[in-house]
Amino acid sequence: MRARLTGLALVVTIIAAIPLCLATGPGGLSPRTALAALFGSGDGGRVFLVRGLRLPRVCDALVIGAALGAAGCLIQTVARNRLATPAILGINEGATLAVMVWVFCVPGSGLGPWWIAPIGALAAAIVLVGLSGGIGMRGFRVLMIGIALSILLRSIVDMGMSVLAVNHATAVYNWSLGSLLGADFSRLRIAVIPVTLALAVAVALGRRLVLLGFDLTTARALGADVQRDQWLALTVAALLSGLAVGIAGPVGGPVGFVALASPVAASHLVGPGRVPVLVAALIGALIVLVADTLARVIAAPNEIAAGALTSVFGGLFVLWLLYRRTGEIG
């Protein structure tokens, strides 16, 4: 009940926030005129501004945020640690590396097809579990090895970057900061289908993953197939974060603020003993929407990468978690 009310409230908030986000920025729009332009009334310039430039960003932000929020929720549950995110574990770096390898091998094709980043993310997840010797019920090893893996992959990306032709390097570098500037529907249109499917699986998984909050024996006695559920969750989380990274780079920031904060906030909202995948996805969507809007105006006329902004918040949030919660982060 509480979860449903929370979800409903979040949906209403997001819907209310959309006109505000469409109106924010240069152009002197009010939420009302922005909404009107969205539905095609008003002069042509305004309609283009809202429909052609800002609407794709809003849609991107919502999809990316939802994917990251859900992915974070799954990974935190599997690793049993509030600080585990696709970014900290090196899964995002795997996606970035895959994109860069594509740019290397197939020059002149832009940043490659939508599926290349999720494959990189999945490969990184598999390498991570292999190096850690299994997932286990205590996230310690997976986290430590994930930190090392993310640094390793980032260094390979750095090396590649120094070799890439300048214009390609700039494209990959800007993309690697995670910005929604210049978003259009082309990538989103294809990626939205796998994201939706993966989200549906994630939400269904959430019900089972609740049992991972118990000790291993009790979880299995209550009918959980622990190992299979852990693998499923990790796979879906890697796919989701890979897809998100593929759409617009690591908008969640290098520390993965969105994937970090959404599940924590969601757990507070829906109460103990749940794995609130759907609520986390909604919160993630809201966070990225707000972050991207802020990134547009905070240093106007310049634009900051939303990913840079979220990483600042992310670090502060981790510090706050470390300060407050001792039990959940080892």
Partner: peptide, 25 residues
């Protein structure tokens, strides 16, 4: 050990963000 490493990773990432903001502006 994990707490210490995570605190460090968080500080590092947060500062990375600050740097990126300064550089883009």
């Amino acid at each position: 050990p994990l707490r210490l490493i995570l605190a460090g990773a968080a500080i590092g990432a947060s500062l990375y963000g600050v740097t990126a903001v300064m550089l883009t502006t």
